[in-house]
Design a protein around this nucleic acid. Structure first.
Lengths: 151, 151
DNA sequence: GCTTCTTGCTTGAATGATTCAAGCTAAAAA
DNA sequence: TTTTTAGCTTGAATCATTCAAGCAAGAAGC
């Protein structure tokens, strides 16, 4: 994988604001890409694709397909596609929902739970955010939160 | 497009660090997704796909295919695919490179340059980063720069 | 000079993620 | 009860992306 060089500069004049903002978008995308690559690499170690790893990561407990799709920010049909693969490997089961007979409840098998543990451990190692101190991560969190919640 | 709710919390204990870091990754991805959606929306207004818009954005001057592929962080074959579309619409031309007869030099036509102007204008409007002040954007820039340059 | 290797670009096949439309069942509302 | 909405699945279609292969031309070696 190749990376275009990114140069740092602080803009002060107003007309340069747009330019700086665009570069900032590039930085966000760049970091997001690194995170995505990181996930893909670690997922591959466990014979998972990136979406499968994302699904597994979000399976903190029994969830419905709809809920999982929301967490994965994708369509339910896409979630079906991904979950089919995981179920085919025996990592989880579709149980009937206790109160809603339309819904499925996704429950990890023992094997699935074990694999999830390994995945979470792998994801934590050499994180793309490791270059930032705890305080910096908190600051970043705050800024991103503000940017996102602005709409 | 739907968005899973994101809750804010500040972690202090060490074992919670990993959790906070993962949530931070989610935030970065979330913002990146918003930026990508923003680009896609604005691109669609000009009958462009997101990759086409990205290519157009990166065409600041005459560049080779390889250089464009680097800027777009993709394979040259992918750049060929995208540039074919733009060339087919008469937005740019493949000129022979002045010194390297293997290479192509991508040059915007007048129409292409005009469309690029409109695109850049659209991209600047209601940016996903508009919720942050200039100082906050600078701070974010610094943090992202540090995170990315770490590796 | 002549090889060998590398680089720039393109083509075509393949993959993989994603979306959409359609349909089914069941819950919820009227 | 009837109608509408929600959860899930299937299948077709799309789109971005990658990979392998190949061609042409520059670069480096002898």
């Amino acid at each position: 994988m190749k990376w275009a060089p990114i140069t740092m500069a602080v803009m002060t004049t107003p007309e340069a604001h747009a330019i700086a903002e665009r570069r900032l978008c590039g930085l966000v995308n760049g970091l997001a890409r690194r995170i995505a690559d990181h996930v893909r690499d670690r997922a591959a170690m466990l014979d998972l694709t990136a979406p499968q790893a994302t699904a597994l990561r979000e399976l903190t407990g029994p969830v419905t397909m709809r809920e999982l799709a929301d967490r994965m920010a994708c369509e339910p049909s896409n979630a079906t596609f991904v979950i089919d693969k995981l179920e085919g490997r025996g990592l989880l089961e579709r149980h009937p929902h206790p109160t809603d007979r339309r819904a499925k409840q996704l429950v990890l098998t023992d094997e699935g739970a074990a694999l999830r543990e390994r995945l979470m451990e792998l994801l934590a190692r050499e994180s793309p955010l490791a270059g930032l101190s705890q305080e910096e991560q908190d600051a970043l969190h705050g800024l991103l939160d503000k940017a996102i919640s602005h709409t």
